[in-house]
Design a binder for these strands. Sequence first.
RNA 1: CGGGGUGUAGCGCAGUCUGGUAGCGCGCAUCGUUCGGGACGAUGAGGCCGGAGGUUCAAAUCCUCUCACCCCGACCA
Length: 483
Amino acid sequence: MGKQAKTAITPTREENFPEWYQQVIKAAEMAENSPVRGCMIIKPYGYALWENMQNTFDGMIKDAGVDNVYFPLLIPLEFMSREAKHVEGFAKECAVVTHHRLEADEDGNLIPAGKLEEPYIIRPTSETIIGDAMVRWIQSYRDLPLKLNQWCNVMRWEMRTRLFLRTSEFLWQEGHNAFETAKEANDDALKMLEAYRAFSEDHLALPVITGEKTEEERFPGADNTYTIEAMMQDGKALQAGTSHNLGQNFAKSIGIKFQSRSGDEEFAHTTSWGISTRMIGGMIMTHADDDGMIMPPRVAPHQVVIIPILREDQDASALNNYVDDLKARLKAANIRVRVDDRDMRTPDKMWDSIKKGIPVRVEIGMREVEEGVLTYIRRDLGKDSKRTCTIAEFLETIQAILDEFHDALFARAVAFREEHTSEASDLAGLKAFFEKDNIGFVRVPVSVMQEDGYEDVMKEYSLTTRCMPFADNGKIVIIGKAY
RNA sequence: CGGGGUGUAGCGCAGUCUGGUAGCGCGCAUCGUUCGGGACGAUGAGGCCGGAGGUUCAAAUCCUCUCACCCCGACCA
């Protein structure tokens, strides 16, 4: 009524984008802040999404000939210092384990005791400890390529955190591959980036620009850093995944060598590549609207929600049988379906499914039961998309509906990105764009990075180079604000 | 680590200046009427007022110390 908001989420994107983002997560029950500073609690609905993402991408990793492994959470401090560039990159944000026991003092407070001879750090990434194993596992060119991946948590002591986008602890996969030749390694870095692009676009409906990072944005110790960059609805960029060609840099600093075909001792060429729970943040900021989340169907925890609608004076058994039967048939068709039979008012269930972004909502009341039909609504199109069809028809078309849903989400995101991408030929043009409070990306010739005053402009508008798109053969660099 | 702010019911807050034994909204529970795009009424449960010490007949309120968290700046997927 009067005090009722027009949108399910307040504030709207327009009013306050960062706050809107937090509220979408809260309303969809995906995650919340934890008692541990900077760390999140991923709730069942959010974790189900992550599991689906993992399952899909894990299959792609295995198709690429990579084996899964697991290495320890703790890394000997000394390992870090083996890689000078690594120290530069991560030392400032490492959590350090210095004790291995707690003792009670006279007041009963627990205090750390048993100081460790050598402290451990909690992995910010596992390059060094996996590299240490590679040193032992690789002796001959016959041991190459060696391709390893692990799904795990890592910790980086971030100053400012935001759910999914930047948390001190986050979940990811980190791949670490070693090769005989420079070309193989570079090809591999590009191949894994292509896997990220495919995963992102074909499964998350997240359009990305593939390209190479500029020198200033490159991963410490990498020869090349490749990236997928997405544009959020506020025009900011999100680096959604990176793949690094480390050349022989890493192998040299840690000692990964092998006997080559000619019998000489050579250093391996390595790559590393990762995507994380950050991608979930990207999906939210790309797809969600002022009524909450919109889940891309291929990874959505529930693709279809069935809401039974029953008045108290009606007999539930006929409806229940009808709904159970439909559910079974959808499951048999490999559709992830949920029946919302919770003890809640019907309108509340509907809004709940909207805020959670379940792609297709099916409503079934006695009307439908009597006629052998169902009514469904697409989340992205809203109540005007309401259709009634027979059960048979629905079963036949649901996969196509979900595919169309995916395509529509993707097309909408691409259109947004295109609308908010401009071209400029020089620094003055770049400055003019951001001076006017425009949002989005500006494509400029790479020579702009050489212009006098370039750094001042970048700093003034807090801009960063996002990437040099492959599509432009390294002639263009995309500049924008970023997460 | 600098600058600013906040700790009172599950959540969001008022009360603090001007001490008098704790309140509002949402949520939660029960009952009734409701239920196809956010319902309403009635009743009810729930609080060592962040912690410690002090002043006082009396402290959420005043004083001292402490802890935690948030925001803004320097780093990052």
